[in-house]
Amino acid sequence: MDAEAGWKQAGESGGKGTGSGRKEEGSDPGEVLERRLKEISSELQSSGFWDSSQRIILQSLRKPFMMDEDEDNIPSLEKLNISENFQCVSFGIGNFSSCSVAKTQMAFLLLLLQELQISRDCCFVFDPVFSELELEVLCRLGLKVMAENEEGKHGISGVRTLFFMVHCGKSLYNNLLWSNWAPETLSKMAVLGNSFRGIQDRMPSKIFQKEYSYIAKILPATDETPFPAHPQYMEIFNDTSVHCFPSSKLKELSGEIWKLPEEPVYEENEEGQLEIIRKSQKKGICTDFEANEKKS
């Protein structure tokens, strides 16, 4: 599929920002940034990494996002037909106007929406560090910027959802799982982000079980498929996996783990900091996003 296809034409309005990553005299910074994203998308599509990674994503999604819920009746890889009643949520992509890693991740996200035939107005994004320029470009691209910092606590309200969360903090993944802590909900979502098993392997078991209990509890019911290794994109997508939670595996978990899930609480590190940016620290800007009904 052509990287240029479906790319929304930028508007004429200018915008202030922290930088576009590549300055061109007399050019609107937003237009320069959009052009650079298109260039990176073309580079991605011509690489073996895109072919391998998008195939892994499609193979991982085809079971949990089957419209008829029949996990044994796997559809054609080429036509998943999941665009209806399906959305994407992106957390923590970073400053894609100035950071090359974040810029490539944003280009990858746009390609993925195109590949899965997900309308851009069904892709909701948030990062409390987004600059004014980045917010403007996201709006011009047709993506929806969330109205507030949910700290990863985003309930999917029964809508099949792919979460794009590359290199996010462990707390965000844990919060996301807590917000959707029910078999019928988890089976309708997938998480593209840091390897859950890698998180487990790199932490003392006691700390992992205590501070990231929802990741720990869901691991036995998780289908995790790692991204391919590629020298050009090693830093950008290292330790990245696609995580799905098949109904058949969720049914095997003890019924006790679903009862009265407690909201996660995190302790500050030695420097008095947390992995996530709290709501009170910085808020996003609403650009006509209507939040799904949140878990009370």
Rank of each mutant, 00 (worst) to 15 (best):
C168T: 03
A107Q: 10
I56H: 06
T287R: 15
E256Y: 05
K259I: 11
L111F: 09
G17K: 12
N180S: 06
K63Q: 14
P183M: 01
F164T: 06
C88A: 15
S42R: 15
E115S: 15
M189F: 07
G17D: 06
E132I: 09
R55S: 14
S53N: 07
P204M: 10
E39T: 12
S97D: 13
N95R: 05
T222N: 09
G15W: 11
P264I: 00
L141P: 00
T240F: 08
E78D: 14
E151D: 06
G155I: 00
L260K: 15
Y214C: 00
E235C: 08
F108Q: 03
H230Q: 01
Q54N: 05
Y173H: 04
P183G: 00
G272N: 02
R202G: 11
A229T: 11
E84V: 06
Q54G: 01
R278P: 03
K144G: 02
T240S: 13
F86D: 02
E78G: 08
S254F: 07
R55L: 10
K144V: 13
M146L: 13
S296N: 09
S187E: 14
N175I: 02
Y173F: 12
P246E: 01
E252H: 08
D2T: 07
C286I: 04
W181Q: 06
M67F: 07
M1L: 11
I207L: 15
P64A: 05
E275M: 12
D239K: 15
A190F: 04
K259P: 02
S83P: 05
K38R: 15
A216N: 07
S179F: 03
F91I: 14
E262I: 09
A221M: 03
L37H: 02
I257Y: 01
R140Y: 07
G11P: 11
L111S: 12
L112R: 01
N238H: 15
D2G: 15
I215G: 02
D223I: 12
D2I: 05
D28E: 09
S27N: 11
F96Y: 10
G15E: 10
G15K: 07
G19W: 00
S52H: 13
K210A: 09
T222C: 14
N180E: 01
S248R: 07
M165S: 01
G272L: 07
L80Q: 00
E84C: 02
E150A: 09
M146D: 06
A3R: 13
C88H: 07
A182Y: 00
I82F: 00
T161M: 02
E211C: 05
P228Y: 05
H154W: 10
F163Q: 04
I199C: 11
K23D: 12
V125T: 03
N292P: 04
E252V: 15
A221T: 02
V137M: 11
V89G: 01
P29N: 11
F96H: 13
S100A: 15
T104A: 12
M234H: 10
G6R: 06
A216Q: 01
N73E: 10
E151S: 01
G198S: 09
L192W: 00
L111G: 07
R140M: 04
S83Q: 11
F227E: 01
S157R: 12
G14M: 07
S41K: 14
L77S: 06
P128Y: 13
G14P: 08
Y212A: 01
M1V: 11
I93F: 10
S76A: 13
E24M: 12
Y266M: 02
Y173L: 03
S53I: 06
R62D: 05
D121M: 05
I118T: 13
S280P: 00
L116P: 03
S13R: 14
K294A: 11
